[in-house]
Design a protein around this nucleic acid. Sequence first.
DNA 1: AAACAGCAGGTTGTATACCGTTTGCGGCGT
DNA 2: ACGCCGCAAACGGTATACAACCTGCTGTTT
Lengths: 239, 239
Amino acid sequence: MATPTTSASEPQERGASLSHRIYDQIREGIIRGHYPQGSRLAEQRLAQELDVSRVPLREAVPLLAVDGFVRTLPRRGAVVTTWTIDMAHELFDLRLCMEVGAARFAARQVGLGTSVAPLRVILDRSRDGVSTGDAYRIATDSTEFHEAVVALTGNSLMRSAMRSVTGRMMWLFYLTSDLNADDALDGHAELLRAIESGNERVAESVAYAHIERDRDESMRVLAAGPGLSLPHPAPPTIT
Amino acid sequence: MATPTTSASEPQERGASLSHRIYDQIREGIIRGHYPQGSRLAEQRLAQELDVSRVPLREAVPLLAVDGFVRTLPRRGAVVTTWTIDMAHELFDLRLCMEVGAARFAARQVGLGTSVAPLRVILDRSRDGVSTGDAYRIATDSTEFHEAVVALTGNSLMRSAMRSVTGRMMWLFYLTSDLNADDALDGHAELLRAIESGNERVAESVAYAHIERDRDESMRVLAAGPGLSLPHPAPPTIT
DNA sequence: AAACAGCAGGTTGTATACCGTTTGCGGCGT
DNA sequence: ACGCCGCAAACGGTATACAACCTGCTGTTT
């Protein structure tokens, strides 16, 4: 976004319309596992927990639904999405469509004179982030790198379309950040070089390989232990 | 009022949460040009025009913003998006990424036994629609065909991601429906055959060519007369 | 004892009211 | 005559209140 100064833990608390702020807040809560998968998000409880009225929530929750973080049932409200192996596969297939194309367009832009400096900046920041060991920070940085690749294409529509994807990506990154932190860093560096070369076919291929490698690692984690992100000792899991 | 069963203008689909209904209603109004490009959507006026309170609008408008139909300015409310040549190009570039990939996955599914019957159904309906000459109907059918291709992949995430794209596609189809109605029909038939063959490379290539042909036609129309969809005599175009 | 019905609690969906900010216009001063 | 200042109206942002619905429990009846 236009606010690259966001720190990982505290998102922009500026004038960005309360609805957007609590959107970010809830999203972070979901990703961090504070709102466990499958749990219900009761509006009143959320409202007094975040100290806002219910109306801003009414704007934020549908957006969370669009981005796949919750599912709204007719009269039951919103429940946090539960990850499945199939969902993860679908995500990687979609990434295959979008990011491979984005890498190609990005390489083309580089060939036309666009600088890859933004990628370097984020990659450097990612290195710092990995050393901190903060999973949320790592997931944020990793996601931002991919967003930066898309941004490099100069296609603002593609950027906004990616937003529906990057949210889920970040969530999955967080869930699997234990393993692929360093690998992802190398992969990003490799992708950066490929895009920098300006060779569309190379960028395309590297992006493809990178995503498939991601898929393999994520699948290994997901298949191993689906007991993910449950900091609370698994409250009764209200159906 | 608690019983909006009157619904005088449209026998809309029931049960779908007032917010969604007015989302569709406003979207159709924008596409049909009833709310001209660049015009402001004042909440109070909309509310009494659609005979709903402002709160459902507060849920619908952000979704329209996500889908690119309006732009919400900080304190100025929502204005209907104004099409530019660049935006159209960005849309086609994004379609290139997503639909080409979708065609590939769809062909793969066909190779695994999935039937292309849904495509045939919609294609047949499209033929009827073209004969009616109703631009909105034509745009709807054409969009639905592309959605059906994505649905054929079995990837529900890809379908929901396409939703951000199909809305804009439909709008642009409507604006340019005069020219490419029959061409689009032929193109869809060709794409259907390609997917039916189960050959991923063929499907991919046909999809690519189809989109680029679409781009050419749309660009011709957009470049010729940007005075699009202005049933009202172009109010002062408030900035 | 089991099953159905009625009641109570809670939650979402919808509507209305209030407040801060912005903006456009008009008057006044230079 | 031009520009600046101030006021008023409108718009969006937020909060509160009401109504309908679903759910779970309990009590009674068969």
